[in-house]
Amino acid sequence: MKLTRKEFLLTAAATLAGIAGTKTLSTVKAAADDSTGASTPRWAMAIDFQKCRWDQGCNQCVQSCNEAHNIPDVPQKSHEVKWIWKEQYKSVFPQQSQWIDPALTSHPLMLLCNHCGTPPCTRVCPTGATWKRDDGIVMMDWHRCIGCRYCMAACPYDSRSFDFADPRPDIVNINPAFPTRTKGVVEKCNFCEERLGKGQRPACVEGCREHALIFGDLNDPASQIRSVLRSRYAMQRNQELGTGPAVFYLL
């Protein structure tokens, strides 16, 4: 079978279009909490203060994420790489009421990329190495990132980490299914887009035994996340900046 490069790429492109269409549909069906709408999803997460057991030392969400995504355990704190991490309530919501029940606010909160509606990080990226997908996920292309760290300066959530050195020596157990990163690129939470593509929920959501993490499609009125946002008071970080975070904290 004789095939020139051009012919090959043309055939491939033609077949791709078809696959892409069916694939998107199946992703929507499989991964959304509920599959009433065929429109593009808008992925979001809600974190339930009341269920989170960080006060009892539970760290399962962070561990699941670290293992799934080959997050290095960098010994030097200033060069840390974190996709999910914890921070005290008062530093996450410094302007919010201090008089809330200390049972809710005395233990740390889980932080991650907010997958903003209008992300400041993608706006400043000079190469398109980070961009917002139609489903709201703020993606990173580690092949294209030049490591200028403009996105880190632009992110008002401290969500981005930089590989100050080759991260591989600091990864305890490499998960062969997910790439590691190389030195000199910026990385952050990808809302487990690789798992969503297979119809699975994000690793942190799966890892949380208390079901404190609710993940779903904001465009689907019947989804669990929409129902919980209807009934509970939810806070978003730095909303006044107009970024439109897709991560909600349920009081």
Partner: peptide, 10 residues
């Protein structure tokens, strides 16, 4: 730059 060899990506 963290990845100077990719500077032409700009």
């Amino acid at each position: 730059l963290g990845q100077p060899e990719r500077v032409l990506n700009v």
